[in-house]
Design a protein around this nucleic acid. Structure first.
Length: 523
RNA sequence: CUCCCAGUAGCUCAGCUGGAUAGAGCAACGGACUUCUAAUCCGUAGGUCACAGGUUCGAAUCCUGUCUGGGAGGCCA
């Protein structure tokens, strides 16, 4: 049973007869006839049944059946659209997890919008959701970070010291170190390098993390857990993980390094987990981290990664399998790259040149709502062309405003109604049989689709479905608005229409909320 | 060389588990403001769903191959 695209094909349709044709060795239309002849309409919302085309059975419902959804929406309010397919299962969504050594870029921004929206949708679909940020605060890049901070420290205190070759060249850490000196003076000049770097790193990480937290908060993203990589080392979790893998016979030594037998799981080659210098690789600590996630009891673990990490997916899944976890319980959403356009030109971004747009600048430029919408309106596995000019445009070219405008319009109607007629009617007081216009049916029918859209979006981890739904719903509202008046001299009709648009307002607001966008009452 | 993603209207993209005449937005063209917000609406035009085979009642969708674009293949993360 499905909902046909063409409304001429009924409210529901089925291709059952065609599927049965082969096993039953009978013409599809003949089978359809038998089914239809044995279908009783009494006591149902079905008005008539027709056989069409090669053997489709189309069901046409009584005209006002859709309006049964209106009292439901008005009753459930912000819960309309919630479904329970998640059955309360525990899901963790980890996203962004950017190095705390720099600023957030466009790729992080897409990950933030995507991860946060996926989490919201899963929550709405009945899962118990935890959002997590993984802090890469140990390992080689932190060592580099320390060396760069140290160099800046010396430079600011008048010594001519070059930055390390593969260090952080970003100007932002100059300010960080200046802040450190303001607070702590130059006492570290006399210290051991190790001690000096540790102090600088501790200070800088705290500052950088706080900045990241703040920027993400301004972007509407809040985390339940900030998980620090270094705790894995301190707690011995990395060693434990290695031991388990070894016990299970997935570890061997070669060239003084320890290797994980990824080839046992169909990988092309094995992977180093402990370098010949005795230090664990990023891969090993990431295995330990994911093991930790499952130990915490999550039924599903979802990671949002950039396309440049896709090679890591199969490795991590095989590591989970090696540890005895179900590799299917780890799902990785891979998002393709973001390309930034301005003035019709591709904006080249590279960290090396310091030429990149940060999330902070983006929010400042185009605003949270437009930015978030643009990031989730495309499927995560499509490349995203982000048009800065379009996102900034306060015109009809911008789909964000199109949706928000629909919401604001309804709010305006509600205000006018209150002025003219006072208290709005209770759902039971309105006669929805008065709604006979095609634009009214279409609107109500779309409203009824919302819970199903949420379920689909949750199943497919596909926020773009909600973005598209909101856009389509807004379109139907605008269309209705331009063909019919809500507030008329006919009080009964006005009441019915008022509740129709109020239900639309509620649904629009819920969809916008899922996307992390505001639902303005005036524009 | 191997693997991943994409290829659909002039542009950017939807198209859920295979369904009926492939859809939006932008751009183009023509209309609608004495009317609850014109950031809106209505209409016109625009297609060899990259290409070639295959699977079947039926393919943009599934399979195979080819081509094009992007990404990945470190004792980096």
């Amino acid at each position: 049973m499905e909902v046909p695209r063409e409304k001429d094909h009924g409210d529901f349709a089925t291709g059952l007869a065609m599927l049965l044709a082969r096993p039953a060795r009978m013409a599809p239309r003949k089978i359809a006839e038998i089914i239809v002849n044995n279908f009783s309409l009494t006591g149902t919302w079905v008005e008539r049944v027709e056989i069409a085309g090669p053997g489709f059975i189309n069901f046409y419902l009584k005209p006002n059946w859709v309006y049964r959804v209106l009292p439901l929406i008005l009753d459930r309010q912000e819960d309309y659209g919630r479904v329970s397919i998640g059955c309360g299962k525990q899901v963790q969504v980890e996203f962004v997890s950017a190095n705390p050594t720099g600023l957030l870029h466009m790729g992080n921004a897409r990950g933030a919008a995507l991860g946060d929206t996926i989490a919201s949708i899963l929550d709405y679909a009945g899962y118990s959701v935890a959002r997590e940020f993984y802090i890469n605060d140990s390992g080689k890049q932190i060592e580099n970070f320390g060396l760069s901070l140290e160099a800046r420290y010396f430079q600011l205190l008048g010594r001519d010291v070059p930055l390390p070759e593969d260090g952080y060249h970003g100007e932002d850490i100059i300010d960080t170190v200046r802040g450190f000196i303001d607070q702590h003076g130059d006492a570290l000049l006399q210290s051991e390098s190790l001690e000096r770097r540790a102090a600088l790193v501790e200070y800088a990480l705290a500052e950088k993390l706080e900045a990241i937290r703040q920027v993400l908060q301004d972007f509407g993203v809040h985390y339940d857990v900030w998980f620090s990589e270094s705790t894995l080392l301190e707690s011995g979790a990395i060693q434990d993980t290695l031991n388990i893998l070894r016990e299970r016979n997935y570890i061997y030594e070669n060239d003084h390094a320890l290797w994980f037998k990824a080839s046992d799981f169909g990988m092309e080659k094995d992977e180093v987990v402990v370098r010949s210098n005795g230090l664990p690789t990023y891969f090993l600590s990431d295995i330990a981290y994911h093991r930790n996630k499952f130990l915490r009891g999550f039924d599903r673990v979802i990671d949002v990664w950039g396309a440049d990490h896709h090679g890591h997916v199969a490795r991590m899944k095989s590591a989970m399998a090696a540890l005895g976890n179900d590799p299917a319980a780890l799902e990785v959403v891979i998002m393709q790259l973001v390309r930034l356009y301005q003035g019709g030109e591709l904006v080249r971004m590279s960290k090396r040149s310091g030429q990149y747009v940060t999330l902070e600048e983006l929010v400042e430029e185009v605003g949270k709502d437009a930015a978030r919408y643009f990031f989730v309106m495309r499927s995560s596995d499509s490349h995203l062309d982000f048009d800065l000019d379009l996102a900034k445009a306060e015109t009809n070219e911008n789909p964000v405003y199109y949706i928000q405008y629909a919401h604001a319009r309804i709010c305006s109607i509600l205000r006018q109604y209150a002025e003219q007629y006072g208290e709005r009617p209770a759902p039971g007081e309105a006669d929805f049989n008065l709604l006979r216009e095609e634009s009214e049916f279409a609107l109500a029918r779309k409203l009824a689709d919302f819970p199903g859209e949420v379920a689909s979006a949750a199943r497919g981890l596909a926020p773009q479905r909600i973005a598209r739904y909101a856009h389509e719903l807004a379109g139907l509202l605008h269309s209705f608005y331009n063909s019919q008046r809500v507030i008329t001299t006919d009080r009964a009709l006005s009441d019915a229409r008022l509740l129709l648009v109020d239900a639309t307002r509620i649904t629009l607001r819920n969809a916008l909320q899922l996307l992390g966008l505001t639902a303005p009452e005036r524009m």
